[in-house]
Structure formats: structure tokens, C-alpha cells
Design a protein around this nucleic acid. Structure first.
Lengths: 139, 139
DNA sequence: TAATAAAAATGTAATAAATACAATATAATA
DNA sequence: TATTATATTGTATTTATTACATTTTTATTA
């Protein structure tokens, strides 16, 4: 999904986020690349085009996006935080062989555990792990 | 659930894990304290009774347990890895107010996403976040 | 358009979790 | 008991993330 810069500026303004050049570029990248990148990967992918980019800015921007509900954090792996611009209801599968993370549709809302009556649930994450079809083929 | 040392020794042997004193104590602690502790918390709770304990040993032991299927890793929060001796099918809820992690029953196996045909799924985690009843009361 | 104020970006330093690794200690085996 | 294999320890290292002061950019006002 390619998102236009104009739309992005409007989205940012609606959320009270200043649409600075850097932020627009980071969000653009995240919306176009659905590989669930880490902050380090975002930095590495953009620093070629934005030579003054700093890693702290990537962290700052991502925190702002997450807080505004424009992106979500994926903590499927214990040593790396990943980001996803797709905030719709879906699960994440990580292939432990190739490391790729796949989205999959899952009705998380349908999970209404009776053990949580009286709890206010505001975020739901479903993480699966295993081996993806490609890695199952070429062992 | 209090587990006897004898049972623990047998479980370890069956899994090919040497039942060293330290490992037994760590596993005992994890089985008795269902607070989903971090490696640091395990260390802090046991170093008083086992003065020679090192944090590296906690990490080593926990890795061995997880690999043997005796414990599971909880990555519900992005800055801390927690451990759970309860490997039965259940979800985890983290209260963002008090930080406590609650278990809740959820039929994770029932989640059979059709988007994952051809994938070999070996691990399923369901993480919810929000506010627990206690924190909802005293705001 | 120029001046000003507010917020963002930058870079360095600090923090903290986890791992690597060599030396020592413990457990299992002969 | 002696030997071998494995576990533990402690220090050093790595790496992700945050803190913070400075500089730059953006938005606002004159």
C-alpha cells in the first residue's frame, strides 16, 4: 500500500503530530515496507537518502507514531522490537528458520476469555512461531 | 503448585538436563512463584539463599529449561523477558498500570487461521494489555 | 518577508539486558 | 577414588534503547 504524502500530512495533523520531513519519510517507508522492520533497519534503509538521519530520531518518531495509534509494536522476539504500520486486527507469524515475519488474519476480537471479566482490555497481540512453507521445502 | 524435589529431579533427567543444585532451586522457585519473573528477579530472589549464584547461571539455566520445554518465554513487554513454568495453553494479560501479569484461559488451539496453511506452527502466544480490576477501582 | 517561539533532529554519553568466554567447581562415570 | 564431562562463576563485551544538551527546522506572528 503506497500512501501519498498529502494524506500522510493530514493524518499527522489530525493526530497532533508535526509532519516534519523526517517523520513523513519514516512513516512512508513503514507504510510501503511491510517487513516489520526494527528501528535499526529503518535507520539503515533511510540514512542513504537522509544522510543527517540519526537513530535517536527513528526511535523518537516511532514512539510518537505508536502513541498516536499510527503504528504498533511487535515484541514477538525477545531481543528486538519491530514496528508495523498496519494497525488492523491481525496476527504475526515468525519463521524461526528464515526470521521473516508474516501477517495472518485472525479474529482476535472473537477471543473473549471469560477469565478476564472486570479487566479493561485495550490491546491484543497474537504471536505464532514455527517454520514457513518456503523453509519447509528447502531443508 | 508446589513441586517436590524428587519429581523435579526425574523431570530433569527425562529431559536430559543435569539436576544440579542450582537448577533445581531455580526451577523450584519458578514453579512456586507464578509471577512471571525476569531473570533479574529470579536472581535477586535466590541470591540471598544461594550466595554464589551468578546472573549468567540464571540465564543459562532458563535457556536450558525453555529449550527442554519446561518453561516458556514471555515477551509481552518490549524491554524485559519473563519466564513462566506453566507451559499449558493459556494467555497473558499485562496491566499497564501496576505491571502485574495475569494468566487467563484461552483456547489458542482453536485459532486455526486459514492464512497459515502450509505453515508449521510450533508456538502460540496470546498477549493482552490493559487495566486490571484492582487498578480500575483505585484510580 | 523577517523575527520569534516551539518543537524536532542530532550526536554523544549513559543505561541495562543478554551473551561470550576462560577459569573454577561440581557432578557423573569408570 | 580418579577421570571426564558438564555446570557455574565472574568479568568483559555486545547491543538495543534512552537521556540530554545543542543545533536545526518548523510554525507563528509582526
Amino acid at each position: 500500500m503506497k500512501i501519498s504524502v498529502e494524506t500522510l500530512m493530514d493524518i499527522f495533523k489530525n493526530k497532533g503530530i508535526r509532519p516534519s520531513y523526517t517523520r513523513v519519510r519514516i512513516m512512508e517507508y513503514l507504510a510501503a515496507n511491510r517487513s516489520h522492520p526494527t528501528a535499526d533497519e529503518i535507520y539503515g534503509s533511510l540514512v542513504g537518502e537522509i544522510p543527517t538521519l540519526s537513530k535517536t530520531t527513528v526511535y523518537n518518531s516511532m514512539n510518537a507514531f505508536v502513541e498516536a495509534g499510527l503504528a504498533r509494536v511487535i515484541t514477538i522476539e525477545d531481543n528486538e522490537v519491530r514496528y508495523d504500520a498496519d494497525i488492523s486486527d491481525h496476527g504475526h507469524f515468525k519463521c524461526t528458520r528464515c526470521g521473516r515475519i508474516y501477517d495472518f488474519p485472525v479474529d482476535v476480537e472473537a477471543l473473549q476469555p471469560n477469565g478476564l471479566s472486570g479487566f479493561k482490555v485495550s490491546q491484543r497481540d497474537v504471536y505464532f512461531k514455527g517454520t514457513c512453507p518456503g523453509c519447509l521445502d528447502n531443508k
